[in-house]
Design a binder for these strands. Structure first.
Lengths: 202, 202
DNA sequence: CCGCCCTTCTGACATTTGTCATGCGAGCCG
DNA sequence: CGGCTCGCATGACAAATGTCAGAAGGGCGG
């Protein structure tokens, strides 16, 4: 009656080390490993694990989108996210995707093993510190379009390009940017992008 | 005659797992662990390891600056960097700091163990892919002031603020920014900042 | 059904940028 | 020494951006 675990992380060093540590626990068995988002999904389909432990940042597709796919295709498989840089918005998106555990990589392996068991039992676990951050950061004050435009502005593109990609007029883009900037209380759109990123609102 | 290793990484999960894996190697012994830059330095002073394995990004002080301090204070201790996001400029800075090994976290634990031995023997090891990136990225085309101004521009501050912080006139700041932008062949200063970051030139 | 908010647009304006020409002094190399 | 580049600066002009007012349609809650 051991818990079958899928491990997805692009860092071979960590994945291997983690697999070794989890293998020490009698009731956990790592049935598959993956280094990318798509690979994680394929492995999940092939091995049908009880719990999928996903890194947030992976090449191909991030942990949250993999979790969404898994929830749709394999309802019996619980998912959890492990991450180095836990930003408030990620937690929110993750919970919306049906993720049942969200922990930073600063926890110890024993803790992780316990949390895997918790998640497998159908309960949830969210790192208290990340939860506090998420609550204090609150919800996005931006409307959907404002966030969308801000995201397109993220790589420093000029307004004309943003307008084209969003199929909006340049004036409208500038209005959205302007209102986003004033809502966030920052100097200009670039600072707005940075802040929104930090808060996980984009 | 085993190699005494210091392990510094802010992610407890990884550090612990790594310590466990390295402990499996007969000739390696982890004598100290640290989660922050200053802690790593203190541990190095206290335990005088043969090899210090440092994460690039840690709270307090990054791996390269810790390596610099170690080189100055403990000449007998070799240093190496392990990182998730290997950017070309980091490699350069690291080598300048006397670091003898530079590897991404995508390597396996066995490889890492081998590399620790290599480094301990006084040789160097640089991940071939990172080395190739560094060579193809080449050296910064920016002058010292251009880079400085670009760095101040990094958080989206307006020219007036940059000028103030750099004690330059606004016109001069704009000139530097302009020349940096044209040298990097990008659209505007924000894209320039991003590119320079990516290449590790700031 | 009325009011409110979101979306989208236009036009006008002030401000901030990016670009260019040009000037001057310092340091360096042949 | 004479040219060369680099750092630093002006001033002026064009383009991009930020800000504001206003207006029209859609949708949703009271």
């Amino acid at each position: 009656m051991s818990v079958r675990v899928l491990l997805a992380d692009d860092e071979h060093l960590i994945r291997g080390a983690l697999a070794a540590l989890l293998a020490l626990e009698d009731d956990l068995v790592v049935v598959a490993e993956a280094a990318t988002g798509p690979e994680a999904l394929a492995m999940a389909r092939a091995h049908r694990p009880d719990v999928a432990v996903l890194d947030l940042q992976m090449p191909g597709a991030d942990g949250v989108s993999v979790a969404t796919s898994i929830r749709d295709e394999l309802p019996g498989c619980r998912t959890m996210i492990v991450t180095s840089h836990g930003r408030p918005g990620h937690l929110k998106r993750a919970l919306a995707a049906g993720v049942r555990g969200f922990v930073p990589k600063t926890v110890s392996a024993q803790r992780l093993a316990e949390i895997i068991r918790t998640v497998h039992a159908g309960n949830r676990y969210v790192d208290p510190e990340l939860a506090a951050d998420a609550i204090s950061a609150g919800d996005t004050p931006l409307t959907a379009r404002e966030a969308e435009v801000l995201e397109l502005a993220a790589d420093g593109a000029p307004v004309s390009e943003i307008a084209e990609r969003a199929a909006l007029s340049q004036g409208t883009v500038r209005n959205y940017l302007s209102s986003a900037v004033s809502k966030l209380g920052v100097e200009n759109r670039h600072a707005a992008v940075r802040l929104a990123r930090e808060r996980g609102w984009v």
